[in-house]
Amino acid sequence: MNAAVRLTPDELIFFHLGSLPISATLVFSWALMLIMVLGSWLITRRLTSDVEISRGQNFLEVIVAGIRDQIEAMGVSRPELYMPFIGTLFLFIALSNIFAALIPRFEAPTGSLSTTVALALVVFIAVPIYGISHRGLLGYLKQYIEPTPLMLPMNIIGEISRTLALAFRLFGNIMSGSLIVGLLLAIAPFAFPVVMRLLGLLTGVVQAYIFAVLAMVYIASATRIVKGAAPEQAEDAA
């Protein structure tokens, strides 16, 4: 199947596990997961709390501390509670996009609508879990009838639509990036696709950042006692 025609790695079936078709999305996701877990394990098995640390540990500490600082910058009191969830979202999306931009024939799992929907669903489920664990069930549900019970349908629609927006924003950006590169390869197969790849690298990291920040903003708004206008503002910016 031609790369220019194929819009998503879901269409590329690698093999069948019984009756289940295993697509490139899953295969590349597993590969990515393997690299991330293996890399983390290799570096963190020899951690030291001394002042002298290895390059790998330094690299991972910079990433982890950066994620924690970003979460803290949003006014969250205990960033370590959200860091694994938000950090994993960011790292999975960012590495998926970076690998797709740097490694030939690597299809970004985030270019699949199934993956982005899955990640958006995870956020969709995580928001009430965090909200209820912080404010209790009633406290969480009360926010849907605020400022007035008349707003209940609007709030529910808003909840669903922002999850859909999360999924489609990421999918659209990544899919369009790889589609453009595929098209340009057919039209101008020399230096121009490289520039587009570099642009894809940039937009890939930016999209990962936006996805993670929005997820954090939704969780923060659900866990906060007083609701702010932050989610809407952040979404407008995206």
Binding site: W41, T44, T48, E80, P84, L91
Partner: peptide, 15 residues
């Protein structure tokens, strides 16, 4: 999420 918490965030934050 589970594996990264086990192999990345936990040890790094602890260190």
């Amino acid at each position: 999420l589970f594996l990264l918490k086990r192999f990345l965030y936990g040890p790094i934050v602890k260190a």
